[in-house]
Amino acid sequence: MRGLAEYIMRGRKEATLAVAIAAAIPLLFWFSAAALALVILRRGLPEALPVLAWGMLPALAWAFVGDLTPVLVILGSAGLAVVLRQHNDWVRVVLLAVPLGVVYALALLLALAEPLQAMADGFREMLPELLPQMGLQLDGAEQATLVARLDALMIPVLGGVMGAMHMLMALISLMLARSWQARLYNPGGFRQDFHRLRLPPLVAIGLLAVVIVAPQWPQLAMLSPVASVPLLLAGLALVHGVVGIKKLGSGWLIGMYALFVIFIRFAYPLIMFVAFVDSLFDFRSRMRPPSGSPGDDDPNSQG
């Protein structure tokens, strides 16, 4: 990856080729987004605009045939890269990604209205058979009420899940770009930034409240998956930070991510809750040796 990052940083021509070619290849939009974000982080938006213009052509072609993902992720990652370059604040970036995720959800609900409705219709037909398999024994009236409620929530929640996934992809592309930048110009800088990512208490309380309460109303249900992403990233940052402080080695992180994928149904809410508790008590500062860890270099050394 270092070699690719060096190639992108050689000049505008190389960066444009990397962004455009990756955007044209199926499933490589994330690399295109990361390459563009790297140019923005290092050289600023004015220098990156020609790269963005050429790189967006393949993404727009994908959008024309019905795949909005490249356009949404590339533009979202670029916008977040501008914010990160200006403020060097990951908390600000992660929180600004929340309204971005809502925009993603609305755009995808509009673009995929027919497929989502067909999926909801199919689930509605299967639901009466699924409820007994889930251990729910309901009479006719109770079952009808539950089916109606789940049916009203299904499309908004699906839109929110898709918006959250695209939001997460944009953030991961930006993180990849920042890690490339740090590797080239400030080794260890991104690691320090990510290990310190922690949500302010009021923000964490608000996000957790949205995650829990929003599904009570179909009109707000899409907000729940989107609001969960900052808590997820803060929880993962906590795990990385603890592993770094304790010098436990990368094996612990590999094991953690393997368990997360296998038991995602339980691990996702657990990590969110741990991030919420950490926002109140700041576990990393309590675990850090009295001498502390060295601060970051001047942020301009990365930008």
Results as ranks from 00 to 15, higher is better:
L146M: 07
M175I: 09
A144N: 06
A141S: 12
M169P: 03
L138S: 05
R191F: 11
Q181P: 01
Q133H: 12
L197R: 00
V147R: 03
G160I: 07
Q133D: 07
M175F: 15
D139S: 06
A141Q: 09
A141L: 12
R191V: 12
L150R: 02
P187T: 14
D139P: 00
A170H: 05
L136R: 08
P128L: 13
R124C: 04
F190T: 11
L197N: 05
M126N: 12
D121H: 08
G159E: 04
L168K: 09
M119W: 12
D121W: 04
P128E: 13
Q133W: 13
A144Y: 02
A164P: 00
G135A: 06
V161R: 02
Q117F: 09
L138F: 03
T145A: 15
E129L: 10
N186C: 14
M167H: 06
A118I: 11
G159K: 01
P187E: 13
F194D: 01
G122S: 12
R124W: 11
G189E: 06
L153H: 02
A144E: 12
L184H: 09
M175G: 12
A177R: 03
H166D: 11
D139Y: 07
R178A: 15
L136H: 05
Q137H: 09
A152M: 10
T145D: 12
L146I: 04
A141C: 04
F194W: 03
D121I: 08
I155D: 03
L153N: 04
H166A: 14
E125P: 01
L158M: 11
G135M: 04
L176D: 01
D139N: 08
S179G: 13
A144K: 10
R183D: 15
L171M: 14
M165G: 05
P156Q: 03
I172E: 14
M165I: 11
W180I: 06
L130E: 08
M162L: 15
L150K: 01
